[in-house]
Structures are given as structure tokens and as C-alpha cells.
């Protein structure tokens, strides 16, 4: 499929109008990619905040501090190299989550109790 997109916006100027040259030489390589998780305050879970490149774990934490906690967004940082994260496959979402769909008895609202029963 080949859809020509003629309309463009701020931050979206097509290459053919750009007048640039294309002699990009691939020099160097990226530092490893890390995923960053931030605990916003004591008592809460760490939550995925984003990712960044860093040479090692310590640099990843220092960089994460600089980009993700400049306004006191966090009290604790976890970093893990992205390659160690295994993600479920969205194409298998059907098989994975379908078994949970028809088990309404897992929800408290499934049970009808007399009005006199309080605090349950």
C-alpha cells in the first residue's frame, strides 16, 4: 500500500520539499537502551516513565534523575536494560485474556444478598 500524504503540519515537512541531501553515513553506535521506572512517592508502585540511552546502569539512573525527576516527580528510580524485558504479543491477546471474560462470579457484584446484610 502506498498512500500519498500531501498535507503536512508543524513538525511534518515532507522530504521532497526539504531540499536536503541524503548522504547520512552511519557512524558510531548507540549506548544501550534502558527503561526507567519511577516511584512518585513512598507507598506507591514504581511506574514506567520512559526510556533513555546510557553506557551503564549508574549513568542510566543519573540521566533518569535529570530528565524524569526535575520537578520532584520521584523518590526512587529503577532502570532495566530494555533487552531484558519480554513483552506479551498483542496478536495473542485473544487467547491470553479471553478466559477471564466469562467469569463474572469473580466479581463481588455477582452475588445478590439481602438488604439487611451490611458491610459486605
Amino acid at each position: 500500500m502506498n498512500i500519498a500524504i500531501r498535507k503536512f503540519y508543524y513538525g511534518d515537512i515532507p522530504e521532497e520539499k526539504g531540499g536536503g541531501k541524503t548522504d547520512a553515513k552511519a557512524s558510531g553506535h548507540d549506548w544501550p537502551l534502558w527503561e526507567v521506572f519511577i516511584r512518585s512517592k513512598q507507598g506507591l508502585d514504581h511506574k514506567h516513565a520512559g526510556s533513555l540511552h546510557a553506557a551503564d546502569a549508574q549513568m542510566a539512573i543519573e540521566n533518569a534523575r535529570d530528565v524524569y525527576t526535575r520537578r520532584m516527580e520521584g523518590v526512587s528510580i529503577w532502570v532495566v536494560e530494555s533487552k531484558y524485558i519480554t513483552a506479551s504479543n498483542p496478536d495473542e491477546a485473544g487467547e491470553l485474556y479471553e478466559p477471564a471474560m466469562d467469569k463474572i462470579y469473580r466479581h463481588p457484584t455477582f452475588y445478590e444478598l439481602p438488604d439487611e446484610v451490611n458491610h459486605m
Binding site: G18, D23, A24, S27, D30, G50, V67
Partner: peptide
Amino acid sequence: GLYLYSAAETLGMSRQEMINDLHSGKAK
């Protein structure tokens, strides 16, 4: 810049390639 480069990387282009494209004038 970092947040956006990270988002772009999820589409399958390396940071290095993007930076090369900026420096060569290919990317705007």
C-alpha cells in the same frame, strides 16, 4: 527531545540514524 526520540525509536529507527539524518540535512 529525549522523550520524542524515545517515542520515535519504538517505530524501528535507531537514535544514531535519526541524528545522522538531522546532521546530513535529510531530516527537517
